[in-house]
Each structure stands twice: as structure tokens, then as C-alpha cells.
């Protein structure tokens, strides 16, 4: 004991420097994480809470909407992640041959929507998707196609939100992939050129395999962020029509802050945590040391 105390005393500056950050981290992050697990086993009420065991979990697992929200989230991730990645890979490949300044210019253009709040982006798209007066139906009408109630239809609402996310997103993926591409040694390309390989073949044979760690990282991070989608749903559809766009975070929000049922909402949050945790494990397992950026 004395030995440890002596070490702590010796390192007092380190602890002192760490303390301010740790107070906030502990109080407003670590403690809430632990508390949320407790809450998921409680019936929390202002006038007194009680332990209810697995009741909250039983309730959410028998809730059809909870399963729909999971399905929507998987569908959303399956739509957004590959499209984001495809967009980022194509654009990175297209800007690669250019001068640094031109590359930076295009990176900035594609990154621009990222600094705009998701609320604003969603409001703009609500306007674009507006059935009678929106831009999209107008463009369709130029081709003689009838208008569609994009967000009012169970078949198109979620794809519309996915499309919106894909068009506006992917900017940081472009930056990351470009950085990784610039890190590929040029002699590999020179060798390929000497062999007479076409640009496309070079890209598939050399670039893509070497981008594997970056791509894997983007897939995992993209999937995790897909499971946290909320703002678009809140602003554009409130989870409708007929729950077609209800996501898990939206459902947590609704249960907790509109119906004030903190117990079941916490149980959902714990399930979300578990899902994200699985993806994180995949990332650590497959990528190991390679995520050092």
C-alpha cells in the first residue's frame, strides 16, 4: 500500500493535470453509462422507482415497433454505407490525378454539407421532397413523370431519407480515402504502368487492396453512425408513415421524452449499445493496430 501511495505522490502532477478532465468525464459520461444499465431494470417514476427485473426487456422485445425500428436501421445502414463508400471511392479516384490544390478544392466542395447542421439539411430536403411544390417532383415532371409523395409513402419514405443522407454525406470518407491513396508508394503504380496495365486494372489490382484497412474502418464507423440516425427522422417524418422510418434512436427519444417511460427506453438504449459494441469488436478484431491515424 505504502509503495502505491509513494508512486501516486511522485506522480501527483499527472493526477492533478488529469483531474479536471476526469471529473467531467466521470460525472457526465461514465456514471450515466452505468446508470443507464441500472435504469433498464427499473420502473422509474418521480414518486418512487421500483426494480422490475427483466420486465422492460420483455416489453420491448414484444413490441412490434421495436423490431420494425431495428429492421429500418439495418435497411438504412445497408443503403447508406455502400452508397457512401461507392461515392467516396469513385470521387477519390477521379480527383487523384489532379494537382494538390484542385484535389483540396473538390474535397472542400464535397465536405461542405458536413458543416451544415443535420436539421438544416433535413429542412431543405423536406422542401425538395414536398409533393406539390418541391424541386424533385418538378424535375420529374420535366420528364413527364407524375409526382410522388416521397415522405408520405411507406415504400419511398426510408429510401428518400437514405438518398438524402447519401447525397449530402460521405465528405469525410472522401478525405480519408484520398489521404490513404496519397500514402500508397508511387513505385507500385510505376511498375503497373510499365506492365501496360490500364488505369482501371491498376485501381482494382493495386489501389483497392491497399485501401482495405481504410474501407473496413469506414464500413464499421458508417454502420455505427447509421444506427444512431435521429435528426433526419425527427425533422422530416417523425418516424412515419406507418413506422416506415422509425429508427431505434427515434424510438428511444419518443419512449423517454414524450411518453416519459424511462425504463423501457433505457432497455432499448442498452440494446443499441450492445449492437454498436458488436460492430466495434469486429473493427478491433479485423483491423488490430491498423486504425492508427
Amino acid at each position: 500500500m505504502g509503495k502505491i501511495w509513494a508512486r501516486i505522490k511522485k506522480d501527483k502532477w499527472a493526477y492533478l493535470f488529469l483531474l479536471p478532465s476526469f471529473i467531467f468525464f466521470g460525472t457526465f459520461f461514465l456514471f450515466p453509462v452505468v446508470w443507464s444499465i441500472f435504469l433498464s431494470f427499473m420502473d422509474y417514476q418521480v414518486w418512487g422507482s421500483s426494480f422490475v427485473g427483466l420486465d422492460n426487456y420483455r416489453e420491448i422485445l414484444s413490441d412490434r415497433i421495436f423490431w420494425i425500428s431495428l429492421r429500418n436501421n439495418f435497411f438504412y445502414a445497408l443503403g447508406v454505407v455502400p452508397l457512401w463508400l461507392g461515392k467516396a471511392l469513385i470521387i477519390s479516384a477521379l480527383i487523384f490525378p489532379f494537382r494538390k490544390s484542385i484535389q483540396t478544392f473538390f474535397k472542400a466542395v464535397f465536405y461542405m454539407p458536413h458543416v451544415t447542421s443535420a436539421v438544416i439539411i433535413s429542412m431543405i430536403w423536406l422542401w425538395i421532397y414536398n409533393p406539390p411544390f418541391g424541386l424533385l417532383n418538378y424535375i420529374l415532371s420535366l420528364f413527364g413523370r407524375p409526382g410522388v409523395a416521397w415522405l408520405g409513402n411507406t415504400k419511398t419514405a426510408l429510401p428518400a431519407i437514405i438518398a438524402q443522407t447519401v447525397v449530402m454525406g460521405g465528405g469525410s470518407s472522401i478525405v480519408l480515402i484520398s489521404a490513404a491513396m496519397n500514402g500508397i508508394p508511387t513505385h507500385l503504380y510505376e511498375a503497373a504502368e510499365l506492365d501496360g496495365a490500364s488505369k482501371l486494372v491498376t485501381w482494382f489490382r493495386i489501389t483497392l487492396p491497399l485501401l482495405r484497412p481504410t474501407i473496413l474502418y469506414l464500413v464499421v464507423m458508417g454502420t455505427i453512425s447509421s444506427f444512431q440516425v435521429f435528426t433526419q427522422v425527427y425533422t422530416m417524418t417523425k418516424g412515419g408513415p406507418q413506422f416506415a422510418t422509425t429508427t431505434i434512436v427515434y424510438l428511444i427519444f419518443e419512449k423517454a421524452f414524450q411518453n416519459f417511460r424511462f425504463g423501457p427506453a433505457s432497455a432499448m438504449a442498452v440494446v443499441l449499445f450492445a449492437i454498436v459494441f458488436c460492430f466495434a469488436i469486429i473493427q478491433f478484431k479485423w483491423l488490430g493496430e491498423e486504425i492508427e491515424y
Binding site: 457526465f28 459520461f29 456514471f31 450515466p32 453509462v33 446508470w35 443507464s36 435504469l39 455505427i224 444506427f227 444512431q228 435521429f230 434512436v249 428511444i252 427519444f253 423517454a256 424511462f262 427506453a265 433505457s266 438504449a269 442498452v270 443499441l272 449499445f273 454498436v276
Partner: peptide, 9 residues
């Protein structure tokens, strides 16, 4: 840990 986990607590 997704931020949403800490929302309620």
C-alpha cells in the same frame, strides 16, 4: 459507447 446511451441518465 454511442452518445444516445447516456441521454436518459
Amino acid at each position: 459507447v454511442p452518445d444516445q446511451v447516456t441521454l436518459i441518465p
